[in-house]
């Protein structure tokens, strides 16, 4: 009798790109908060979109495959919440500094 193959750590295949894009977005938004580096918030705000999209895709995939109880939405939920927070911060900084200061 052969044993079933072990389940992969990330059956969705979206976890690593979600984490990487979220870290990159967080780093750019954080550096863009520095005075005189406000222009960085334009790419910072744009970079918040990939983790948001990947997080939503991950949540949908987890929901679709939920019948086998092998997936959990926590990391994708975190990515969606985190990217929304970062986007709000970047937009607020752009409004405060008029996108240049």
């Amino acid at each position: 009798m052969t044993e079933p193959p072990p389940k992969p750590d990330d059956p969705t295949g979206l976890l690593l790109p979600t984490r990487v894009t979220l870290i990159v977005a967080a780093a750019v938004v954080m550096v863009g908060m520095t005075p005189c580096l406000g222009l960085l918030q334009w790419p910072g705000a744009l970079l918040c979109l990939p983790p948001l999209v990947l997080g939503i895709l991950g949540l949908r995939r987890v929901r679709r495959q939920h019948h086998d109880e092998s997936l959990h939405p926590a990391p994708f939920l975190g990515a969606v919440v985190g990217s929304c927070l970062l986007l709000a911060l970047a937009v607020t900084r752009l409004i405060l500094g008029l996108g240049v200061a």
Partner: peptide
């Protein structure tokens, strides 16, 4: 958010 994202996606 960091703690959530660092969790594994398997159950």
């Amino acid at each position: 958010v960091g703690d959530l994202v660092a969790k594994p996606s398997v159950v």
